[in-house]
Simulated assay, not measured.
Amino acid sequence: MKKIIYPFLLLALIACKGNQQPADTDETIPVATAKTDSMAQPEVDAVTSATSKPNQVSFNGRIVLPPQRQATIALTMGGVIKNTSLLPGQHVNQNTVLATLENPEFITLQQTYLDSHAQTEYLQAEYERQKTLSAEQAASQKKFQQSKADYLSMKSRQDAAATQLLLLGVHPETLIQNGIQPLLEVKSPISGYATNVEMNIGKYVNPGEALCEVIDKTMPMLCLTTYEKDLADMQVGSPVQFRVNGMGTKVFYGTVVSIGQKVDEINRSLEVYATIKEADPQFRPGMYVTAHIQKQPVATK
């Protein structure tokens, strides 16, 4: 028996299939959306992780001291440390005695100066007398020339000894008044804090060997590492904002005062120095900082 499918039934089946809804599933299809960031992401340097943004540049660096604010204590004459009470971190004033040294050569040098000083006075008087007699033709020219040579030779010896004493911090005038000093006093040339103390009683120190250092923290600076690509947007006078490791989120301010003129051949970096507007008493040389150098607008004509 043949099955007969009427046309209107076929149309109804097709309509029902078109109205069916897909079954709900737990899977969702992610939709890609475009997000516009109001600030460009910083560029990160591959060497030191320094970053840069469109309007400012971020650098790593450290707190340093200018050369005029630190002194290495060393003498041109060696000796044995006879006495010292200096401790690391101790504050000392300018001309404070840091230690005393014992050296027989120091006594000999003082004796040389005193002897030559006395001889110079005598020879100078004799030279002046022979000069007067020579002018009056009462003495031979030979005696006059000999007295002049003796005087100048002794005077140069006196001056040489005086210069050596000054290098050791001893004033010849004081030596004439007070006589020979048995010990050489080591004095601080600046006021500040003692660091790297490398001396103790009984230790022999060689000429030129550092005994300690004295640092003046009243005017610290920043030493920042920068790169070739940032030089075009940087100049002396650019404002600096920085934070110090270990001091929280407090922000300090400074100004660029010097930009290095030689690029390191290995990492293509150079150093930038900046003064600090208000130094904190907690600042220590060597502390790490993160700084932002504000880019200067290009002047238009």
Rank of each mutant, 00 (worst) to 15 (best):
S238R: 07
G61K: 02
P281T: 05
G61C: 02
T96W: 11
A23H: 08
I73N: 01
G248C: 13
T72E: 07
L87N: 13
I259P: 12
N93Y: 11
P297R: 04
L166G: 13
S147P: 06
Y204V: 09
P182E: 12
T195V: 07
I176H: 00
G18K: 12
Y151C: 12
G192M: 02
D216S: 00
C223L: 11
V257L: 00
S58I: 07
A149F: 07
T275K: 05
I4F: 14
M77V: 11
N103F: 11
V57Q: 02
A99C: 13
L165I: 10
N196A: 15
K142W: 12
E271T: 08
L114Q: 09
Q68D: 02
A210S: 10
S156T: 10
E209K: 06
G208R: 04
S188V: 11
A232Y: 07
K217S: 01
V57G: 00
L87H: 11
M39G: 00
L65H: 03
T226M: 10
S52I: 05
K277D: 10
S49I: 08
K295L: 02
M219T: 15
K17N: 08
Q20P: 04
V57L: 03
F106P: 02
Q70S: 10
P285R: 10
T112M: 15
I276M: 05
A299Q: 10
P7W: 13
V257A: 03
G286E: 04
T300G: 04
G254N: 03
H171P: 01
Y127I: 03
G18N: 12
Q261T: 00
V251L: 08
Q70N: 08
